[in-house]
């Protein structure tokens, strides 16, 4: 199974297995990655699963939906690499994907 690496703002790494098709928010929840709360359960309503995609992976991910873009527009500490990971469904070819968690969520 491919691995995804979540990195907390204090550089603590969490290497977790991610089944293809599973949302990366769910993967984080199942592995108790601190700072990923997923309060709305993946309805794109809360932005408590905000991550920064590592620059190396930026161009491998599908574009943001309009809901995701709008949520991020109003969220704190957003940059061009911000994503809501509930909206990212794992793919086999994403093995090694690096996602960083904002300090405000940790």
């Amino acid at each position: 199974m491919p691995t995804v690496i979540f990195i907390e703002s204090n550089e603590m790494e969490h290497r977790v297995e991610a089944e293809a098709g599973c949302s990366l928010m769910q993967v984080a929840m199942d592995n108790f990655v601190p700072g990923i709360y997923g309060e709305c359960g993946g309805a794109c309503s809360c932005a408590t699963c905000h991550v920064y995609v590592d620059p190396a992976w930026e161009h491998c991910l599908p574009p943001r939906s309009s809901d995701e873009s709008f949520m991020l527009e109003g969220a704190p500490e957003v940059n061009e690499r911000s994503r809501l990971c509930c909206q990212l469904k794992m793919r086999e070819e994403w093995g090694g994907l690096v996602l960083r968690i904002p300090a405000t969520q940790g």
Binding site: C44, S45, A47, D67, F70, M71, E73, G74
Partner: peptide
């Protein structure tokens, strides 16, 4: 249908 306003409103 205003997620961007909601996020600011929260703060």
């Amino acid at each position: 249908n205003r997620p961007q306003d909601f996020m600011v409103a929260k703060r």
